[in-house]
Design a protein around this nucleic acid. Structure first.
Length: 906
RNA sequence: GCAGGGGUAGCCAAGUCUGGUUAAAGGCGCAAGGUUCAGAGCCUUGUGGCUUAGUGCCUUCGUGGGUUCAAAUCCCACUCCCUGCACCA
């Protein structure tokens, strides 16, 4: 008869909830404050969240049983932009999204009509967020997590906004909030920043912001700025390229006159330049004129080129045929095309005279790497675009890493390209011949916004940042990180590296849902910046809500008092209207629970959330309230494939708990692999474990009757010894957050030991007594990982109360008996040998076993019957090798060759 | 490109820090035997090669070198895979 685990689970989940055993309040006891980051509520909880939370829950339950006062709260993250994207798609009737969300909603709502109404309401992003924030609670509950739900909130709550604004004012006070220029992808039509979700095919082409150097070539009183990624090549400039048939403008840019393409003028405006267009004209008006190359003051001619794209950068290109394949092919083609030149009134002789200028020495290449590479690839003309791009990429890489600048590069002679580059940019800037230009970089161009406008790069002049580059702050983090526990240790290096490369992070945006920036209207605090110290809020949020404190009462003085102990509660009562004793109560509760002792999450959070979590705690709180420990686990993938919405293979956790049951899920999620290994979710594996769980349940429940105490025989002593050893090992494994090792020992290893014992023990009454006794402790040992099954068994064993609240078993070291374990090992080896010999030599009737010590002799004598039965011997004799009578115990078996320790068969 | 992690028998996965007890845990798969009307399930055994009355030898832990009496484990180089690189939670 199959065991109805689901029924058992529901039953205990209800009882836990009803008896409020996981609701934690300050007590005289030692506290333990565990957190797992709140999930983002844009869909149902999935098995990946489940894995992380299961690990957290196992540890939390362990600590609770160890006698600590444990708090594990949970909340929901709803601020940010992803829900906006979902709402947009639903409003636009995107069928795929609607279908997906109908499926998600159906996980909790069965009526079709209701589902449809709900999904339609998702046109409003708040509805998406609030719906999933609600259902996630039941998702969590159905996996049996021991969470204190009184303290739940969402990041969209008014109280939360007040708290976050307080945090940001604090950061600003300390000088950690700065404002400055910041380049972003931008759509002129939407007049807004565009993220991956706003760009056509954004998830595939992954556009980035590229920073080019503008090299300004002087032409009379004006400048022609050419954009380049390779400013070091200016020494090899032979000419400029201008598209003769496209429109260029003369414009006042800040205080200078620039000549650029029409499109470039627009972009520069968005990139923070003051641009006033003075006149426009076709490019051929410039052709034939001479400009001066900065730093070397060489005069070079402006030549016409149809391949110049005026939508790209400034629309002006300087030509370095020795090192740039496009320039070389352009020049080559032009030399062969006098008609074209004549059309633009250029003397073909002048162009014929232009020769590439080699400026970079490159091993394995001759004087002109670009020419060589073009010849190697068989590039004939400008139509071979792909090949020219490929050649460009090759040469760029080779020269950047291996190229050395030649003597015609003035002060840069002998320098590596990689080194020279920055110095040249500096020099150009110093002599007012250099500037910056941002351009979109992507595999496919142009990059289009979903509104069909080309995406450009704009520079926000007044972007707000959190200044994680602040050296003093960083140093504090470095020092504290050394004191923090990171488990598994292999991830520590990554934390350290992130601290180093982290710099200013934009912390507010102009759209999305969330908390408004307190210092400037129209900015919403971004969702990774609004979730760094919120664990503090857990300690008091239930008091705020229960006492019906209004969000507007939560003034800075209140937060300062609760979290920093500043001010006087009586005075703050007057300012806020919150009763002094409630303020005191909140302060006490915060002081009791803080710091956050342990935070567990998935590794993806290291480079952002977790590091921000550390930074912000160090900025806001005194050192006694800084985080202590972070543990991590890898992700979950589904049958070898990454889980993602676009593959449609995300497994909601409710699906897992409904299909397999919570305990089975927990057992598998914690046992399948180590923390630092990706868990491949394969149905086959789970079904295998199911059998084990069922066996465990029926085995243990069949020994529920308590029996009278009896004297132990050796094999029982052996089981007690092994059992206590395992308790000890499990405790150590859990203390060190080696969850998998704990599960393997406590569940699988013990299971096989118990089965072995049952085969070996002949006295049924003793077996019943021993197993009843051991199982009662075993249930406690397994309660953290499979709590529902254990509660049920605990109850079946006639025990009162919840096993979840029992004391964690202590190993009885006196019962750990090495001798008896060794003897059992010898016996076991003997059995293996016997089996092997019998297999090779055929069945025999009599076995002679010679042992060395009295202890062994006794032990084997006890097991004679067992051996006889197992191998079908008529007789089994055990002798001590040194016993003079060994040859002839019954007057028949004396043989000279026998007697050495070992086994002999007849 | 930069940074971090990893490559272990048919598959998944321990072991690597602290070198020898490791032909290398455990699981899956496969094979044989048992239980069974049959299947499922469960139990036992086997699962690199050769060999043997419980043994011994050879080859093996991405590839190639090195250190050592001894290397899956330490060092170097190469190679392949995964993750992160910021406005995306």
């Amino acid at each position: 008869m199959p065991i109805d685990f689901k029924k058992i689970e529901k039953k205990w989940q209800k009882r836990w909830e009803k008896s409020k055993i996981f609701e934690a309040n300050p007590k005289k006891k030692k506290k333990f404050f565990m957190t797992v980051p709140y999930p983002y509520a844009s869909g149902p909880l999935h098995v990946g969240h489940g894995r992380t939370s299961t690990n957290g829950d196992i540890y939390t339950r362990f600590m609770r049983m160890k006698g600590l006062n444990v708090l594990w709260p949970m909340a929901f993250h709803i601020t940010g932009t992803p829900v906006l994207g979902i709402s947009d798609l639903i409003r636009k009737q995107d069928q795929e999204t609607i279908q997906l969300f109908k499926e998600y909603v159906s996980l909790h709502i069965k009526e079709r009509k209701k589902v449809e109404v709900l999904v339609e309401s998702f046109g409003n992003p708040w509805n998406v967020a609030n719906f999933f924030a609600g259902t996630m609670i039941s998702d969590f509950r159905s996996l049996g997590f021991s969470i204190d739900w009184r303290r739940k909130f969402t990041t969209g709550d008014k109280e939360y906004a007040s708290f976050i604004q307080w945090q940001f004012r604090k950061l600003k006070e300390k000088g950690y909030i700065i404002q400055g220029a910041y380049p972003i992808l931008f759509c002129v039509n939407c007049n807004n920043a565009v993220g991956e979700d706003d760009i056509k095919g954004g998830d595939v082409i992954k556009p980035e912001v590229g920073e080019y150097t503008l090299v300004k070539f002087k032409l009379e009183e004006s400048y022609l700025p050419a954009a380049t990624l390779r400013p070091e090549t200016i020494f090899g400039t032979t000419n400029l390229w201008i598209n003769p048939e496209k429109i260029y403008v003369k414009a006042k840019v800040d205080n200078e006159i620039w000549i650029i393409s029409e499109r470039a003028a627009e972009k520069l405006k968005k990139q923070g330049k003051k641009v006033k267009i003075l006149e426009s004209f076709p490019g051929h008006k410039l052709v034939g004129k001479y400009v001066s190359v900065p730093t070397i003051n060489r005069e070079v001619i402006i030549l016409p080129a149809d391949f110049v794209d005026v939508n790209e950068s400034s629309g002006i290109v300087y030509s370095v045929p020795a090192h740039a394949p496009w320039d070389w092919i352009g020049l080559k083609v032009l030399k062969e095309n006098s008609d074209y030149l004549v059309k633009y009134r250029i003397d073909p002789y002048i162009v014929k005279k232009i020769e590439p200028i080699s400026i970079i020495k490159l091993e394995n290449y001759g004087e002109f790497p670009a020419i060589e590479e073009c010849e190697k690839l068989g590039i004939k003309n400008l139509e071979d675009k792909e090949k020219i791009d490929l050649a460009t990429e090759t040469i760029y890489k080779e020269e950047f890493y291996n190229g050395i600048l030649k003597e015609n590069c003035e002060n840069y002679n002998g320098l590596k390209v990689a080194e020279a580059k920055e110095r040249i940019v500096d020099e150009l800037k110093n002599i007012n011949a250099g500037d910056k230009f941002y351009e979109v970089i992507a595999k496919e161009k142009p990059v289009k916004c979903k509104c069909n406008e080309d995406v450009i790069v704009a520079v926000l002049q007044d972007q707000w940042f959190i200044d994680y580059g602040n050296e003093g702050w960083k140093e504090k983090v470095r020092q504290h990180l050394k004191k923090m526990e990171i488990v598994p240790e292999i991830y520590r290096k990554q934390f350290e590296d992130v601290v180093e490369w982290l710099h200013e992070r934009p912390c507010a945006r102009k759209r999305g849902i969330g908390t408004e920036l307190p210092f400037e209207k129209g900015w919403i605090i971004e969702s990774l910046s609004d979730s760094t110290i919120y664990m503090a809020l857990y300690t008091v949020i239930h008091i705020i809500k229960n006492n019906e404190i209004k969000p507007e009462q939560l003034k800075d003085e209140v937060w300062n008092y609760i979290f920093l102990g500043e001010g006087d509660s009586e005075k703050i009562e007057k300012v806020s209207g919150i009763k002094s004793d409630i303020l005191k109560k909140m302060r006490r509760e915060f002081e009791y629970w803080y710091p956050n002792d342990h935070r567990h999450t998935a590794i993806g959070h290291i480079s952002n959330h977790l590091i921000f979590f550390i930074f912000n705690h160090l900025a806001i709180f005194p050192s006694k309230h800084w985080p202590r420990k972070i543990t991590l686990n890898e992700y979950v993938i589904n049958e070898g494939r990454k889980m993602s919405k676009s593959f449609g293979n995300v497994i909601p956790s409710v699906e897992a708990s409904t299909k397999y049951g919570a305990d089975l899920y927990r057992l598998h999620a914690s046992n399948a692999v180590n923390l630092q290994t990706t868990l491949d979710w394969r149905e086959k594996d789970i079904l295998t474990i199911r059998k084990g769980l069922e066996n465990f349940f029926s085995l243990v429940s069949s020994y529920r009757q308590k029996k009278k105490e009896q004297r132990l025989d050796d094999i029982s002593k052996w089981l007690y010894s092994k059992f206590n050893r395992i308790i000890d090992e499990c405790t150590k494994n859990l203390e060190n957050f080696r969850i998998r090792n704990y599960v393997q020992k406590s569940f699988f290893e013990l299971m096989s030991l118990v089965l072995r014992y049952r085969k070996r023990e002949n006295k049924k009454s003793l077996e019943k007594y021993v197993l009843n006794d051991i199982f009662k402790t075993w249930i406690k040992l397994l309660a953290p990982v499979i709590p529902h099954v254990c509660e049920e068994l605990w109850w079946l064993f006639g025990q009162k109360g919840f096993v979840s609240l029992e004391k964690w078993p202590k190993p009885n070291k006196k019962l750990i008996n090495k001798k008896v374990e060794e003897l059992e090992e010898i016996l076991n080896n003997t059995k293996e040998d016997l089996a092997h010999i019998i297999k090779l030599a055929g069945k025999k009737k009599i076995a002679y076993i010679y042992v060395t010590t009295d202890k062994e002799l006794d032990y084997f004598k006890e097991t004679l019957e067992h051996l006889k039965k197992q191998f079908g011997f008529k007789k089994v004799f055990v002798f001590k090798s040194s016993d003079p009578k060994r040859y002839d115990p019954q007057g028949k078996t004396s043989k000279a060759k026998y007697g050495k320790p070992g086994i002999y068969l007849e």
